[in-house]
């Protein structure tokens, strides 16, 4: 357990007045230094999991630990090591960013006071303006600063790049890398699949309160549909391509097709060997496609 940052066993939550489990026997084991993405549609149980880990709500059954400490009984000690960012972050609108960070620093003095200013500089956060006058992106920066300012070992982040412009997203990814390089672990819930693809080592898919599967990014890439853009000299052999098991074929121009293939590649190359191919490009892994494929497949099994 020494290298486990976040652990849960049978963690469940039923809200009062409901007859279903919002979270159903969640088993998690997130290693030190790992960035774990938590994916799922709205209402799947992502926020419930985060709120349980943060001890904002009480589990109905099961238990969980962060850095070996119980999330319910050792919550205060755990919070010394945790940085948290809520999905829809609520700040104090009448305070300036500086006042708000001072308040948070009073509650939890940062290890290095200069680090807060360094972070503010990195994210180009304007701390002298009242929070109510800031744009969503700028409020999100303040939210990120308060999560990172005490250099926590564990980060629990809900939609962390929401509202950030691409430059700031880039800065956030860098900061995340620095955190994990220093041994930090991250639990991130997100709808932004490109973001998850970019930062996570492993992804858990949750649906209707159940963790359906967990896969590393490498496993997803290996099992994922690979998409090729193939240019033929002459008419593409569409029927032959469509006959390949697991292939989806889409014409994308004269003589050009997009072939999305799940599974063995050799049948595709056998077909291509019979025709004159002018060019072939492989597109990057599309996690969004995987996400949709995953949930569609589950839907069809219902």
């Amino acid at each position: 357990m020494a290298d486990v940052a976040i652990f849960s066993e049978g963690l469940s939550k039923r809200y009062p007045g409901t007859d279903f489990l919002a979270l159903n026997k969640l088993d998690l084991s997130i290693k030190t230094g790992e960035v774990y993405g938590f994916l799922g549609p709205n209402g799947a149980g992502k926020s419930t999991t985060i709120r349980l880990l943060m001890n904002f709500i009480q589990p109905t059954a099961g238990h969980a630990q962060i850095l070996g400490q119980n999330i319910v009984t050792d919550s205060v000690a755990i919070k010394r090591q945790v940085g948290y960012l809520a999905g829809e972050i609520a700040l104090y609108p009448k305070m300036t960013g500086r006042q708000f960070l001072d308040y948070m620093s009073d509650l939890q003095p940062p290890k290095n006071k200069a680090y807060v200013n360094q972070l503010a500089k990195r994210f180009q956060a304007n701390l002298n303006v009242k929070i109510r006058d800031l744009s969503k992106g700028n409020r999100q920066k303040i939210g990120l600063l308060q999560a990172f300012m005490h250099q926590p070992k564990i980060l629990i982040l809900d939609e962390p790049t929401s509202g950030l412009d691409p430059l700031m997203q880039e800065e956030f990814f860098k900061l995340l890398k620095e955190t994990t390089a220093a041994g930090g672990s991250v639990f991130v819930s997100s709808h932004n699949l490109a973001e998850v693809q970019r930062m996570c080592d492993r992804v858990g898919f949750i649906r209707e309160g159940r963790l359906i599967t967990e896969q590393s990014m490498a496993e997803i890439a290996a099992a994922a549909a690979r998409t090729f853009t193939i240019t033929f000299e002459g008419a593409p052999p569409r029927a032959e391509l469509a006959a390949i098991p697991g292939a989806k074929v889409k014409l994308s121009g004269s003589g050009q097709v997009n072939v999305s293939l799940r599974g063995e590649l050799s049948p595709l190359f056998k077909v291509l060997a019979k025709h004159k191919v002018a060019g072939i490009d492989q597109q990057e892994l599309n996690l969004e496609e995987e996400f949709l494929h995953f949930y569609r497949a589950k839907d069809s099994k219902k």
Partner: peptide
């Protein structure tokens, strides 16, 4: 109501 209580309880305060 404003959920700012989460900011406070995310800190090491009981």
């Amino acid at each position: 109501h404003d959920t700012t209580i989460e900011l406070l309880l995310a800190r090491p305060i009981s």
